[in-house]
Simulated assay, not measured.
Amino acid sequence: MTATPVYAAVAMQLAARSIENTPDRTAAREQMLVMIAELEGKIRSSAIFIEQYAGSKVRLAVLPEYLLTSYPGRISIGDFADKAALEIDGPEYAALGALAERLNMFIAGNAYEVDAHFPGLYFQACFIIAPSGEVVLRYRRLNSMFAPTPHDVWSKYLDIYGIDGVFPVARTEIGNLAAIASEEILYPEIARALALRGAEIFAHSSSEIGSPLDTPKDIAKRARAQENMAYVVSANTAGITNTSLPLASADGNSMVADFKGRVLAESNSGETFTAFADIDLNALRTARRKPAMTNFLARQRLELFADVYQQESPQKADSLIQNNEIIVPDRDYFLRIQEQTIERLIKDGLI
């Protein structure tokens, strides 16, 4: 086993900036680029402090969920796609790539983006950008309450991107990286699928209510780390600006958890870099390769569950494909789908 140096990862707890009150697409795009420019000083100064304080070089910085735009609210799906969703080869990704290059580190984050294969829709995407400036991982959120997902256009999405595009893992010099979006940390199947494809570090971009009490997401972060023998680097927002919400409504509790589910660092409220910790890949890989009761990955018996998972899914695929055409839903569409799903599960005696 080749020795891998220990390095630091940091969850940058920063305030998201809503585009809700920007007058048009041009103003929204200008605001996003200004915010990307502001990131450099915050990440660079944080990395310098961490290296001086802890002696470890920062190789990975994780940014919070929808940092550049905040969530869509009641803006229609088509309008939000036009106003706020990034293009894969657009100027925002170019600016983020240049930022990663100047900082010489991996930057993980989350944004809404459009895809030419699915006109009128947008997906919530997690990305990881290498120090070369290249986007080495793009993961589209698979489970969302109020937005389109690849599962809603499943047959066409699989034809275009394949399963590697659904559950991507980037094999890099700092380990095998994967991304989990927001509340998806609550769904163990997503993290397990990525771990079974080799993921060692989960970059988790989130925007959630912080609390001194254990929240469901806090518990899930530790659980996903422990059961998959992986690090979780979880960056929460430090509130959301330019909106009518009270500023600190989604603030605090960024954390780094190790592969035993132990919290190595956790932030309080406000903009901060204090959720940082060492990533020790040698220790993780040694644990994964050691025969033991605690080797949860090696002890998986997936055939046991195959028949259960092949049963009819509560949420059906391809809900946004009708007569082989992509439809653009209204905001309440997804709530109606969930109501119908609950009715069917009650009828079938499953809930």
Rank of each mutant, 00 (worst) to 15 (best):
A108E: 03
A108F: 05
A108C: 05
G109W: 04
N110K: 01
A116P: 00
A116H: 10
H117C: 02
F118A: 05
G120H: 07
L121K: 07
Y122G: 09
Y122I: 07
F123I: 10
F123M: 09
Q124Y: 01
Q124W: 02
A125H: 02
C126D: 15
F127G: 04
P131T: 13
G133N: 02
G133S: 05
R138K: 13
Y139I: 00
R140I: 01
R141V: 12
L142F: 03
L142A: 08
N143W: 08
N143C: 04
N143V: 14
M145I: 12
A147I: 01
P148D: 07
T149Q: 03
T149A: 12
T149I: 02
P150N: 05
P150R: 03
P150H: 04
H151E: 12
H151S: 11
K156W: 06
K156R: 15
L158T: 13
L158Q: 13
L158V: 14
L158M: 13
Y161G: 02
I163A: 09
I163W: 11
V166E: 03
V166K: 03
P168F: 12
V169W: 03
V169I: 07
V169K: 06
R171E: 14
R171D: 11
I174G: 06
I174C: 06
G175P: 00
G175K: 06
G175T: 10
G175S: 07
L177E: 10
L177D: 11
A178C: 04
A178W: 03
A179N: 06
I180Y: 05
A181K: 02
A181T: 14
A181F: 06
A181E: 06
A181R: 01
S182E: 13
E183P: 00
E184H: 07
I185W: 08
I185N: 11
I185S: 11
L186N: 13
L186C: 05
L186T: 10
Y187F: 10
Y187A: 07
Y187M: 08
Y187T: 14
Y187G: 00
P188S: 13
P188T: 14
I190W: 02
I190Y: 10
I190E: 05
R192M: 09
A193D: 11
A193Q: 11
L194F: 04
A195L: 01
L196V: 02
R197M: 03
A199K: 04
I201H: 05
F202D: 11
H204L: 15
H204A: 14
G210D: 09
